[in-house]
Amino acid sequence: MRHHRSFGYFFGCWLTLLSVQPFAALAAGAPSLDDLADALAKRGASSAEYQQTRYLDMLDKPLESRGVLRYRPPDYLVQKQTEPHRQTLILDGNMLILRADGRERRLDLADHPAGSAIATSLRGILNGQIDALQEDYDIVFQNLSDAQWGLKLLPRTDALAQQIVVRGRLEGEVATVERVTIKHTNGSVNVMKITHPADSR
């Protein structure tokens, strides 16, 4: 029944998960987008802590929240918010499930075609299938200084977000994503910072 268009945001959040795993393939020399895709395809289940700041156009001050992100290949994602309120958002296949206040709400991505397009695309990243991604986004892959890399996604269709920027780090055989920034068309900006537990590095 509910219909919303800002899907870009939380897929953006989940996108950060891809960074949690070691990117072994990137170890040899400057990584290319294909190297990244190969590395992604080999990912296993992962988990990371996040801290998120929302800059909403209509609000005078930003909103802060934090929690844990989990990913299980090929298409199971959990965002478990612990502060300020305990809430869990799950993407399981095509179902989006929000658990809050002892209640469960379900949404079918098929009812939200635009959101579904993003989900398919982002799932493409998580699966290492960047081809799918390139249908919906112009992708700019950047090798930044100091072992950092970036991935800029510019939606081609029905803009849900003006821009999604993923930043990561490559250290030895381990690549991580440290930040995802989503600029919404309505002017809001979400910044999610990812902290990786020591054992997953």
Binding site: H4, Y9, L56, L63, S188
Partner: peptide, 16 residues
């Protein structure tokens, strides 16, 4: 406003 800060906050933002 608190709901805007939930994982589905951006959906709520449309209605707000």
């Amino acid at each position: 406003i608190e709901r805007l800060n939930s994982p589905l906050g951006d959906m709520m933002a449309e209605l707000f």
